[in-house]
C-alpha cells in the first residue's frame, strides 16, 4: 500500500478527524461518513406531517405523523407540545408499528358457534348479522318493568366493555346508543 493511501485512510478515521478538525466532541462533521451523507431521513421526504396524540398512557404526548404516498412512514414527538416537548417513551416511539405492523389483522374474522376455526366475512354482512343479533337479544330479554312492577325499560341481555383509548366522540355515541336501546351494562377500563 502506498504511503499516500495509508495516510488518507488514517486521516479519514473519525477519531483523527475529531481530534484534528473543528468537531472536538465528535457529534457532527467528524463522524459523518459518505454513506450517512447519502441518506435522507423519512421525515424529510414525507408528503405531509399530521399532528396527533400518543395513544398509550394518559400523559398525552404530542406526536407528528409523517405521511408519504398515503402511508405512515414515521411517528415522532411533537416539539411544540408543552406537555411532552418532543419526547416519546419506548411505546410512543414504537407506535409506527402499531399502524404498519405486518401482523396487524385488517380483515374481519368470524367464528360460528361450536366452530373450530376462523372464517372470513365481509363488512356489510358482519354489520347486518350484528344488527340482527342485537335486536333479537334485545327483544328476547326486554324488561319493561322489574319484578315489583316499576318501570325499568331495559335489557340485561347486552353488555359492553370498552378500552380507554376510545375517543370522547366514540364514547359519546356508544353511551348514547346503548342508553337509547335500553342496554345499561356498558362499562370501561376506567372501572378496571
Amino acid at each position: 500500500m502506498a504511503l499516500q493511501d495509508i495516510r488518507r485512510t488514517f486521516l479519514s478515521w473519525p477519531v483523527v478527524r475529531q481530534l484534528t478538525g473543528s468537531d472536538p466532541t465528535g457529534r457532527g462533521a467528524a463522524v459523518v461518513s459518505d454513506h450517512t451523507r447519502a441518506v435522507t431521513a423519512r421525515t424529510e421526504t414525507a408528503d405531509r406531517v399530521v399532528q396527533s396524540i400518543c395513544p398509550y398512557c394518559a400523559v398525552g404526548c404530542g406526536q407528528r405523523v409523517y405521511v408519504k404516498d398515503e402511508k405512515v412512514v414515521q411517528i415522532e414527538g411533537d416539539h411544540d407540545s408543552p406537555i411532552s416537548r418532543g419526547r416519546l417513551c419506548p411505546k410512543g416511539s414504537a407506535s409506527e408499528q402499531l399502524v404498519n405492523n405486518p401482523g396487524r389483522q385488517i380483515k374481519i374474522l368470524y367464528r360460528r358457534p361450536y366452530g373450530t376455526e376462523w372464517e372470513s366475512l365481509d363488512l356489510d354482512t358482519a354489520m347486518q348479522m350484528i344488527t340482527e343479533r342485537v335486536l333479537d337479544t334485545r327483544a328476547r330479554t326486554w324488561q319493561a318493568t322489574d319484578d315489583q312492577g316499576r318501570d325499568v325499560n331495559r335489557t340485561l341481555g347486552i353488555a359492553g366493555l370498552g378500552g380507554a383509548t376510545l375517543d370522547n366522540e366514540e364514547n359519546y355515541l356508544i353511551k348514547k346508543i346503548f342508553t337509547a336501546m335500553g342496554a345499561i351494562q356498558i362499562e370501561n377500563q376506567a372501572r378496571i
Binding site: R140, T141, G157, I158, L161, G162, G163, L166, I174, Q185
Partner: peptide, 10 residues
C-alpha cells in the same frame, strides 16, 4: 342472563 357482549379495545 347476558347473551351478547361488545369488547371495544379491551
Amino acid at each position: 342472563t347476558v347473551e351478547g357482549y361488545f369488547l371495544l379495545g379491551q
